[in-house]
């Protein structure tokens, strides 16, 4: 067992983990942040995306030990300080960018990473960026709209509400 310590959503956390423990397992099982979801076992679906030191990472692809000392942000840390939904989260609700909600944490984390890197992405840029996030419910239409709306773009022109 190895001791790992990291900062998750601004709070210092630590735990004893096996060498094989994935960051996704550490978040879900050791520190009970179950908002990060695991939807596959081949690092394809993206439901487990979190930010590690500011970069979007599939947390099922990283060992907990590798995140020792890192700053980790999960979906639980995405709301505004007063608890209200952040701009991206609010856009997902406003534009019905989620249905069952299972892929949603990963989608929101990926969207945040995209907008940091590209503040005004085109529709095609959003679609290309989301290549590593699978949603089975929405057909992506409203996810793309939500992300573009969160970036401040007028989405009424790309599709009817």
């Amino acid at each position: 067992m190895n001791k790992v310590s990291m900062t998750v959503n601004g709070k210092a956390v630590s735990g004893e983990v096996e060498g094989r423990t994935l960051l996704s397992s550490f978040l879900r099982d050791d520190i009970n942040l179950t908002g990060t979801h695991v939807g596959c076992d081949t690092s394809q679906c993206g439901a487990c995306v979190v930010h590690v030191d500011g970069e979007a990472v599939k947390s099922c692809t990283m060992l907990a030990a590798e995140a020792d000392g890192a700053e980790v942000k999960t979906i639980e840390g995405m709301a505004n300080a007063d608890g209200s939904l952040s701009v991206i989260q609010q856009a997902f609700q406003d534009h019905h960018g989620l249905q069952c909600g299972f892929c949603t944490p990963g989608m929101v984390m990926s969207a945040a990473a995209l907008l940091k890197e590209n503040p005004q992405p085109s529709e095609q840029e959003v679609r290309t960026y989301l290549e590593g996030n699978i949603c089975r419910c929405t057909g992506y239409h409203n996810i793309v709209k939500a992300i573009m709306a969160a970036s401040g773009q007028d989405v009424s022109v790309i599709a009817a509400e």
């Binding site: 179950t34 908002g35 995405m78 939904l85 909600g101």
Partner: peptide, 17 residues
């Protein structure tokens, strides 16, 4: 707007796992 979205968007959904 869907009321269930708030918990899903904040990681507070409660799925079986």
């Amino acid at each position: 707007k869907r009321r269930e979205d708030v918990r899903f968007l904040t990681g507070a959904g409660r799925y079986t796992d």
